Amino acid sequence: MKQLTQENYYQDTSYLTNSRFKRYQQCQAKAYAVDNGSWTENRDETPLLLGNYVHSYFESPEAHEAFLAENGDKLLAKTGKNKGHLKADFVIAEEMIYSLKTDDGFSSLYHGYHGDDVKKEMIVFGDIEGVPVKGKLDSVNLSRGYFVDLKTMKSLYAEEWNNDIRKRVPAAVNNILNFGYHGQLGLYRDLLKQMTGKDFRPYIVAVSKENVPDKDILKIDDEWLEEGLNKLKADIVEVWDVIQDKQKPKTCGRCDYCRSKKRLNAVISLNDLINK
Score class of each variant (00 low, 15 high):
224 W>Q: 15
245 D>P: 00
248 K>L: 12
135 G>L: 03
110 Y>T: 06
178 N>K: 13
48 L>C: 02
220 I>L: 15
273 L>K: 03
240 W>D: 11
94 E>C: 07
15 Y>M: 06
258 C>T: 06
104 D>V: 12
231 K>E: 11
186 G>C: 05
90 F>I: 00
100 L>I: 02
212 V>W: 00
161 W>N: 12
57 Y>T: 10
188 Y>M: 04
119 K>P: 00
7 E>V: 14
109 L>I: 09
276 K>M: 08
124 V>T: 09
107 S>Q: 15
230 N>T: 09
99 S>H: 04
268 I>T: 12
230 N>A: 15
21 F>G: 04
106 F>K: 09
24 Y>L: 13
225 L>E: 03
213 P>S: 03
43 R>V: 08
185 L>M: 14
229 L>M: 09
106 F>P: 10
212 V>N: 08
159 E>D: 09
150 L>M: 10
107 S>R: 15
201 R>W: 04
78 K>N: 00
82 N>D: 13
185 L>W: 08
148 V>S: 04
112 G>C: 05
141 N>H: 01
26 Q>F: 14
219 K>V: 10
221 D>A: 12
257 Y>A: 07
157 Y>A: 03
266 A>F: 09
181 Y>G: 01
64 H>C: 06
208 S>I: 01
89 D>R: 01
267 V>W: 10
255 C>N: 11
210 E>G: 11
161 W>P: 10
146 Y>E: 03
227 E>I: 02
186 G>S: 05
150 L>R: 02
14 S>Y: 01
72 G>Y: 04
38 S>N: 14
254 R>E: 12
107 S>K: 13
52 N>W: 12
267 V>D: 11
115 G>R: 07
55 H>Y: 07
79 T>A: 10
199 D>C: 02
101 K>W: 01
97 I>Y: 08
2 K>Y: 02
60 S>E: 08
254 R>N: 09
129 E>Q: 15
104 D>W: 06
8 N>L: 12
250 K>P: 00
98 Y>S: 15
11 Q>L: 10
70 E>P: 00
181 Y>P: 01
217 I>W: 01
140 V>N: 05
239 V>H: 05
140 V>T: 13
226 E>T: 13
121 E>G: 04
164 D>G: 13
218 L>M: 11
184 Q>V: 02
183 G>P: 03
14 S>H: 05
